[in-house]
Write a protein that binds this DNA or RNA. Structure first.
Lengths: 237, 237
DNA sequence: TAGAATTTGTTCGTATGTATG
DNA sequence: CCATACATACGAACAAATTCT
């Protein structure tokens, strides 16, 4: 590579790498060449490459993981958190194919937390639905939803067909519902969640805990959603 | 320990540990005894203790880290994210002593991101303020704020006295301001942030990116805040 | 910074009790 | 009474992450 005068070499390497990423020579999510490989390719010292990479990492273009390498950051999806959040609308408005895949469902007794949030008596029956939300086949979130079993008997069958809880609720006469609150925390995923999200166990997740209520204010869903922090960020407006 | 009939041993151990935590025999944030220690103390197999611990971890009472041990979860502070979030009000309303400590401040040229969010021309001067927010002397968040230097010349001195940006803004004639948006992501902290938050580098942080605007809609602050995910969760209502 | 020690995580296997039909 | 399934409990060995020396 020819060095341009008056511009530091690491800046020029940074620019070149930025071009390569823009042109998808290195694709989002993929591993970049090692620092040594890049150093030989550019004919410079490894530290010069490191300076360029540090700038890219600072600008959030790549993500460097000790012992594993550097990875091109995927473009993050802004996921609005509000009182009328609907997954399919959000994703398709970004020109991506949404899909919500049912992983498992069962009927069980409400734990104290679930009972409190759904305003049920302890040990009342609830439906637990585990699902994975994807865009273009890439998992974005894993949701664990709890619904009062008495009120929503048979909802799982409808959900399987429509792949949307909003639609399924409509079948039960709920035209509209709103988000009562959303609590957001950051955690490291357990093996199950990491597997479903197809991500490293060492990468953090955004965990939301939320309650949806019907027009009358009665809780209809309590859920935890685990978002991949590499591909999603939450947006409050 | 005497085993009660008709109740599985791991359930009884779970109850006992829960009592110990409630009575602060094991205090929030502290390390629990190792599984082996507990197993000998209760006179059972390590697996039996693990089952009890798994239940406590599931209920979010403890947090288990491979190679390190189990820790009692600290009570988390609900930090509201809205368009009128004020740090000192939030913390003191929870009966805790808020403090915002200035770490550093400098004047520098706006990076592209900063310029875009503050609606400045690239390379215009901005004030960068790095601060740590604490409650009862425990760090909760590290904030990096950028303000237009031209408009807020000398604000750092006022901030040093009042320890509140809200107050400092008032000195500049800004009676009221609102949050335009907040973007939330999860990351692992770099060494600097981890050090300021006094937390492990392997524990994730909640990172918010936000812009505040004055009554006329002009951006007055662009900032990134890193919250300890162990002691804070964000709340959207 | 290399290796030993510590601690939790996972996977075998075995045995026992309990509920169900 | 028997067969089956499931949860409980113990034991041993090894993997993986972290801390100590």
């Amino acid at each position: 590579m020819e060095w341009e005068k008056g511009l530091s070499i690491w800046k020029q390497i940074e620019r070149q790498l930025l071009r390569d990423i823009a042109l998808e020579v290195f694709k989002p999510g993929e591993k970049m060449p090692t620092e040594m490989e890049l150093a030989t390719r550019f004919g410079v010292n490894r530290h010069t490459v490191r300076q360029a990479m540090a700038a890219l990492a600072e600008a959030n273009v790549v993500r460097v993981e000790q012992g594993r390498g550097a990875f091109v950051q995927e473009s993050v999806l802004d996921y609005p958190v509000g009182n009328r959040t609907r997954f399919s609308q959000i994703v398709s408005s970004r020109h991506r194919m949404p899909d919500k895949r049912l992983v498992s469902d069962k009927i069980l007794k409400a734990s104290p937390t679930v009972a409190r949030n759904l305003r049920l008596k302890p040990n009342e029956k609830v439906i637990e639905i585990l699902s994975v939300s994807e865009a273009d086949g890439i998992p974005l979130a894993v949701g664990q939803s709890f619904l009062p079993a008495k009120r929503f008997e048979g909802i799982v069958e409808i959900f399987k067909g429509t792949k949307s809880l909003t639609e399924a609720f409509r079948e039960f006469g709920i035209q509209d519902y709103t988000r009562k609150f959303t609590k957001i925390s950051a955690q490291l995923p357990n093996s199950k969640i990491a597997g479903l999200l197809k991500q490293q166990k060492s990468r953090p997740i955004l965990l939301t805990e939320s309650v949806d209520v019907d027009a009358a204010g009665a809780p209809i869903e309590y859920g935890n959603t685990s978002f991949t922090s590499d591909r999603v960020q939450l947006l409050v407006e």
